[in-house]
Design a protein around this nucleic acid. Sequence first.
DNA 1: CCGCATCCCTATAGATACTG
DNA 2: CAGTATCTATAGGGATGCGG
Lengths: 135, 135
Amino acid sequence: MRSDCPLNYGLEIFGDKWTLLIIRDLMFFGKRYYNEFLASDEGISTTVLADRLSLLERQKIIRKRKDKEHKQRIVYSLTEKGIDLLPVLINIGLWSDKYASRLNPHRDIIIGAAKKDYMSGIEEMKRRLYDIHLQ
Amino acid sequence: MRSDCPLNYGLEIFGDKWTLLIIRDLMFFGKRYYNEFLASDEGISTTVLADRLSLLERQKIIRKRKDKEHKQRIVYSLTEKGIDLLPVLINIGLWSDKYASRLNPHRDIIIGAAKKDYMSGIEEMKRRLYDIHLQ
DNA sequence: CCGCATCCCTATAGATACTG
DNA sequence: CAGTATCTATAGGGATGCGG
């Protein structure tokens, strides 16, 4: 499966049904805790979640830390490498929005800004993610 | 796994390691025949290839026809729905190009135009794909 | 030969139950 | 709460068959 194609590099990391959904949860839905990811609509199982979180951390796409206030909780957040996946997620969202028959509730959260003005929408969202995840 | 999230719609279709590689071959490398896809660097197996081609056809992302000249050969091409995946592929490529340590030979073919000027690069490539695939 | 479909077998992904 | 252990289902590789 290894190859030097630039597309393949990305697909080796997030080319499965679950990885990008975790990133989506961090990126658009403000989730930060293990049990919040577990509670996603798609019903990710705990083995898959643990596996993908550790993969994403090894790839330096997310970062894990202890919660400052509740020392026993673990907080997940995006790195810059993770935030840079924003245009990928946005464009999957734009494509799905164009071709999915069924409307859906999270549409505006994910592609609202980018649909008005792609470039400035992306920039605005990116700034917000920097504030939240890179403090 | 079903949910109404717009990201999930796309991931249900191409959220695996192989589907987008076939689209890449159609989109950037000018491949059109079954045996050309089989010969990809990543070594897709014939069972997986047949499965994904039929999936992509059912999803109306690709179209299959008889070759005009060699009647016994089958030609695959992208539909408009398939061509609209261009920004997704491009952005995976841009991200990989930023973070993959290993350089690779197909870099320019995939992200060259989009890196100079994203919007006009995409438009230019899209026009070329329309010419080739939608005749 | 070309484009698959089928069969078999193995590797891996994923669901459930359980634990520090 | 944040995972592991265990078990099972499924995906995928390779060989082969088969119609056009």
